[in-house]
Structure formats: C-alpha cells, structure tokens
Nucleic acid binder design. Structure first.
Lengths: 211, 211
DNA sequence: TTATTTATTTACCGATTGGTATGAAATTAT
DNA sequence: ATAATTTCATACCAATCGGTAAATAAATAA
C-alpha cells in the first residue's frame, strides 16, 4: 500500500460518491499547474514536469483535467479569476486617471511579487511558439485584446463623465496603457526591480490627458 | 545524380578550395534560419523545420553552423547587424528627444514591416521556455539590458550637452523607452496596426522632459 | 589516372514528447 | 461478503526531439 490516505483536504464536506475517492486536491493541483505554466510557458512545460509539480501521475491528470491544452485553459481561468483579478478592480476606479494609475502600479506590485513567477502569464506563456501551439497563442492574444477593449470602453465612459477631455482618443490611450503593461511584464521577467518599474510608471503617467 | 549544380550563388569570386564545393549559399541559409527563429522562437523551431526552411539537410546544417543553439546565436548576430541596425542609428541622433523619437517610430516601422515576422526577435524568441533553453533566454535578456544601458549612457551625455534637464533620471527614462519598445513588440506580434502604434508613440513622447 | 579533401545523402541513434491501455486498489451499495 | 464503481500505478505507445555514423559524390592536387 503506497497510496497516500485520503486526508480530507477539501473544505467542502466531501459529498458521498461511489467508487474510490480522489487522493489529491483538485484545486491545489490546478494551482500548481498554473505556477508551472506561468513560469515556463505552454510549450516550455512538459507533462513530466507537470506530473512532478502536481504530485499526481499522468493518467490522473488526464482523467481530471483532460489533455495538456485543456489543463492550460483551466489554469488560465484560475489565473484571471485569482492572481490577475486586480485588473478588474482597477477598472472600477472613479476616474480614468485613477484607473490607469491603479492598473499600472498594481501591475508593478503583481509582476514583482516574490510569491509567484514574475510577469504576466497572458503575455509570457505563448508569445512565440511552434504551429502546434497556435491555438493557445491565439487565445492569449484574444485575452490581451479584450483587456485593451475594456480600457477603451472605460475611457469612453470617462469622456462622458467629463474626467477625460472630449477630444481624447480612447483607443489610443487604451493601447498606450496595455503596451506599457506588456512591456513591464517583459521587464519584470527579465529581473527589473519594483522600484525601477514604479519610476517608469510615474514617467508614463506624467502626461495624462487633461483639459 | 540528384544533387543540384553549383550554380555560383555567392557574389564573391568563390576562392578555389579543395574538395567538393558547397551546394548552398551560407548567407542565404542563415537568413532563412533567422526568419524561422524570428517567427516561431527558439523552442518553437524544430530542426525539421529548419531543414525545410534552409533547403539543406541536417548534417550540412550541423557541419556549417554547429548545433541548434549555435545556429540561433549566428542568426541573432545577423539580426542585430542587419534588420535591427536601425536601433544603433537612432542612438546617433543629435538630441535625446530625437533619439527617442527615432527609436520608437523606427521600431513601429520595423515591427510592422510585412517583409519579415512582426515584433522584435530579441523580445519574442525565448521570453519563457523550458530549462533546456535557459541559456538562450539569458542571452536575450542580456541583449535587452545592454540596449537599456546604452540609452542610459546616451541620456547621461544629453544631460551634459544640455538637451535634457540636469535633474532627469537617465536610467528611468531609458527603462521607459525600452519598456515601450518591448510592449510594442508584443502588440505588433498580436496584430496591432502601424497607425495605432504610431499614435501610441505620440502619446508616449508628449511628456518628454524639458526645462 | 589516382589520391586527397570536402559535402551531401540516407539512414539511423537514444531521449523525450504528449497521450493511454490495463489491471490492481479503494470505496459505496446491495 | 460481494458486486459495482471509480481512482491509482505501472508500463507502454507512436511520433518527434536534437544529433550523428557511414557511405557516396564532387571537386582539386599530384
């Protein structure tokens, strides 16, 4: 008997199901998968590495999450809903400038947080890759474009509210923000310090549009 | 007899050497390798793909360029000296602001040039990867840091020349520029248009430091 | 012609890739 | 107990990975 005991890791009362119970925590396994994909990207992560990181063997991974691509997709959802949720929060700030400031400074804190890999998974995980990963690459591009579009809509709203000049080009401003964000992700993954990135943000925000 | 004739591709007079002559143009082969690495990154490019792209078979590649890593290194050198040479040119502009403007607008034109893959190879080719490519990743990080450092030195000079305020932080300004550059590379590889990127550059340069 | 040198071709190598078949182990329902 | 159900572990799969051995082809030197 080499299998670990079912030590009831889940917080839920473990609804009675038939058959052998799961020997691992799915949430924790997904969290571990996220860490690995975040650090080494989609192609750079092998199933062997995932087996080791999740602590469960291959057939269990496939039974629980599907194939490598499906696992990445679920890790990505977890990333957006969890670690990267600060982006949605920033969007709720009362003014456009505050949105931008919160977004960029939040990104700096996030990118340089020692508790997880540096940089943004959506930027890093499949920037360039072989043809076999083109679908993943496209998915990440869509995520980035959606964020930019959301900023554009937020800035359109700000123009109506009057906290952004009426002649401002919302789309250009949104691209300015997301480009800085993506660039900072590259910087952070290359070892840039929190301080240097914060200084950069100050420069970037100095010329915020105003009447 | 299936081998192609030696149709004297090189421009040079083909110095007489002993033994069977090369059946391909090394320069052209390296150019092709550069294209592939540029598009699919280091890990995303397989030897099989290189064989097809270079038009020569594997043993010839190994005999001429060494292994995959060595070939990438030579392609990278070609990239820096050739396509990416505009960066060095921008550095020679007479004032700091002109350096920045030339660099960013040049990058936009470069990143969206239809004659080669979008974005910057030094940013894209190994942003995240498996442990086996850590050396390549580190090399590219060094290239990026060197560029940033060069901007910093150029801005230090500008402060002495007086075309940049004396209280300007050269390092921060250099990071601002390279971060925009890296972000634009991500944008371009995701399909951003030349026009949208140029608009972004205008925003980015609006608050250039001045007395 | 013959020997020497270099390049190209074909075929192959062990290792690793993502992905599974299969049978044993662990649980609940009867 | 025993049957039914589900998960786990071992071992395996074909395909691809980067890289090479060995023989043949094409040139020059003698």
């Amino acid at each position: 008997m080499n299998t670990p005991k079912n030590t009831e890791q889940a917080s839920k009362p473990a609804k009675k199901t038939r058959g052998r119970p799961l020997a691992f925590n799915q949430e924790q396994a997904l969290k571990n998968a996220l860490q690995v994909f975040w650090q080494h990207g989609y192609e750079g992560t092998s199933m062997a590495e995932l087996v080791e990181a999740l602590g469960i063997n291959k057939p269990s991974i496939y039974a629980t999450f599907g194939n490598k691509e499906a696992l990445f997709g679920q890790a990505l959802e977890k990333y957006v809903a969890g670690p990267a949720a600060f982006v949605g929060e920033a969007m709720k700030e009362p003014s456009a400038k505050q949105v931008a400031e919160k977004f960029l400074t939040g990104a700096v804190a996030f990118f340089t947080d020692q508790n997880h890999p540096p940089g943004c998974m959506i930027v890093q995980a499949a920037l360039s890759c072989g043809q076999g990963s083109a679908q993943i690459q496209e998915t990440l591009i869509e995520y980035r474009k959606r964020l930019e579009e959301n900023f554009k809509l937020r800035f359109d709203l700000a123009k109506i509210h009057g906290d952004l000049p009426a002649n401002t080009n919302s789309a250009d401003l949104a691209k300015y923000l997301t480009t800085l964000h993506q660039g900072m992700s590259v910087q952070a993954s290359s070892g840039a310090s929190k301080e240097s990135l914060l200084a950069l943000v100050q420069i970037a925000l100095k010329n915020w549009p105003s009447d």
